[in-house]
Write a protein that binds this DNA or RNA. Structure first.
Lengths: 116, 116
DNA sequence: TAATTAGTTAAGCATCCACTTGACTATTGG
DNA sequence: CCAATAGTCAAGTGGATGCTTAACTAATTA
């Protein structure tokens, strides 16, 4: 997979998660699938507003849906979350390795008697 | 810490990470501190644009800076990344527990001879 | 001290975002 | 059949974002 495609995917996933309403929707779907009406019920905003949030989540792959009769059921699609978590993890391990290297250098310095 | 304060913090962190330029800045700072000019050098955009990105990163706590003489040096502030990673981790473990419960139910069904 | 370097401020602009209301379609229950 | 239910479409609005250029300040260097 090419870098700027992943980049674009990450753009969209992080953008999607940068909204408290959408994060609550994700958190709700973690506990299992639900219809639009049920998903919208806890929020003070209009139904179309919630639907737009769901469309954002779906268009970046965090969520999927199917329609049966007149009710559309959404479910979590964990791959998207994993992508974001993976990027964060990479940064953290990079950071930790840097600290390790720094610690190593300091230790080496000390052994050479370089106290400053 | 109150929920909607964390929420707002998460808004800002995810929003900050929802931009490829800012993610590259973070990735660069993972390898160690750097001055504004060095941070800006790889990008095709103007210096002020990069500075605005840095301000976004700093204002949400992903990054910190200090000025010595005429050069301002930025460094990573890992707590912000941890907050985002933690939220994602919570969702993932919630999801995994749900799958476990589902698996348990299916197993119980099988023992009862409920094959459908 | 004059020129260069590093960073900052401000204004302007095109685009995107979150939300609203109102009108509409399709499915289902009485 | 009709009426309620579940969802969808479309247009509009106010405010945030990402970038630009131009003008400016402060620290260094020749």
């Amino acid at each position: 997979m090419v870098k700027h495609m992943v980049d674009h995917q990450l753009d969209r996933v992080f953008q999607a998660l940068a909204d408290a309403t959408r994060r609550e929707l994700v958190a709700r779907l973690v506990t299992g699938p639900a219809a639009v009406k049920e998903l919208a019920q806890p929020f003070a905003m209009s139904l179309p507003a919630v639907m737009q949030h769901l469309r954002v989540l779906e268009s970046c792959g965090l969520v999927a849906s199917e329609k049966a009769g007149r009710v559309r059921t959404y479910r979590l699609e964990p791959a998207g979350l994993r992508l974001a978590e993976q990027w964060l993890g990479e940064q953290r391990t990079g950071w930790e390795h840097r600290l390790d290297r720094l610690g190593g250098l300091l230790a080496a310095d000390r052994q050479e008697g370089n106290t400053s």
